[in-house]
């Protein structure tokens, strides 16, 4: 019997678990702990990812043949870059990602500054403001499709009651782009707000007090103290949101289904159509790899920006 014994429950005679631990040793067991997660991730993410890279160099359409066709080099990529609908989807996706993210950052920062605090009311407000983000994006689409319905939707009826003839929100090409930006921003502003609220809460209170003692005004404090301090998190949130907006798929399905025409085809939606509707497997794979490289470029840009900001802050 060894002394002392702070954990009586673990001092039972080592059973099968103890023998296993003795047999495999400390790092053996820990390596074993890694196995399930790695297995799932490799099997269901990395292997499909790699096989899509390989498929993108072959000619295969499931509607024409059940097995993979011949190797065709970069033909699928050439086809991707010369496809006007692909270019169109890239343009719309970029507009959506940029406008929606900008809107989310502005509104999210505003909401975070309005609702930061620990009172019961503010906590309740924050919880309620979170709702748009937690419901299924597919349902967000159906909800907005109802609200924006041109003839009988509540929005246009409300506008009509004050004498405005509301547009065909989802049917008109320009308004459809605008509507999708608004819907995406509505859904994800809460994410920005929550994260920035956490960032604001974690600001050291001494700094804020020192600023007010020094007679710094509201705007000066925000511009020269708060904003620089939350900037690294701000950039990270901007990156999350830009990339995720770039991948938008679900709400397109239930609002415009990519229409009218091809005006609201996001890249994901277009690739989904190519791959899972027309079964142009290898073409969709090539396009999706082009899209993946776009995402890597976006992430790389944001991370460089963030590094410069933090380096600049450290150097001060």
């Amino acid at each position: 019997m060894r002394q002392p014994q702070p954990y009586p429950q673990v001092r039972r005679p080592a059973g099968i678990v103890g023998r296993l631990e003795a047999r495999l040793g400390e790092s053996g067991i820990l390596l074993l702990f890694l196995v399930p997660a790695l297995l799932v991730v490799i099997g269901a993410q990395l292997y499909p990812l790699a096989s899509s890279a390989i498929l993108s160099f072959f000619d295969w359409s499931l509607s024409r043949s059940p097995t993979v066709g011949p190797f065709i080099g970069f033909d699928n990529y050439v086809r991707t870059f010369t496809d006007p609908i692909f270019a169109n989807s890239v343009a719309f996706t970029v507009i959506l990602a940029v406008c929606s993210t900008a809107l989310q950052l502005v509104c999210g920062l505003g909401i975070a500054m309005l609702t930061v605090g620990e009172s019961y009311t503010l906590r309740l407000v924050r919880t309620l403001l979170m709702l748009p983000m937690v419901v299924a994006p597919v349902a967000v689409g159906t909800i907005w499709r109802m609200i924006l319905s041109a003839r009988v939707g509540p929005l246009n009826q409300a506008l009509a009651s004050i004498g405005i003839d509301g547009p065909n929100w989802l049917g008109d090409p320009n308004w459809a782009v605008f509507s999708l930006i608004m819907i995406d921003a509505w859904e994800w502003t809460p994410f920005v707000a929550i994260t920035l609220t956490a960032a604001l809460t974690s600001l050291p209170s001494e700094v804020m007090r020192a600023a007010s003692v020094d007679g710094a005004g509201r705007w000066t404090t925000f511009r020269y103290i708060v904003l620089p301090m939350i900037m690294p998190i701000f950039v990270l949130v901007a990156m999350f949101r830009t990339i995720e907006a770039f991948l938008t798929l679900d709400i397109v399905f239930t609002t415009t289904a990519g229409g009218p025409g091809y005006t609201t085809h996001t890249l994901s939606f277009w690739i989904y159509q190519q791959g899972l509707k027309y079964f142009n497997i290898s073409y969709a794979a090539a396009s999706s790899w082009v899209m993946l490289l776009f995402c890597v470029a976006i992430a790389g840009g944001f991370l460089l920006w963030r590094r410069r900001i933090t380096a600049w802050q450290v150097s001060r």
């Binding site: 991730v41 499909p48 899972l276 794979a285 790899w289």
Partner: peptide, 23 residues
């Protein structure tokens, strides 16, 4: 390995969807 897990969050899931369907 940590970065690997992080990256998975950021590539388009549509890239994986098709091969996963085939798998």
């Amino acid at each position: 390995i940590g970065i690997l897990f992080l990256v998975i969050r950021f590539y388009p899931k549509i890239t994986v969807a098709l091969p996963y369907f085939l798998l």
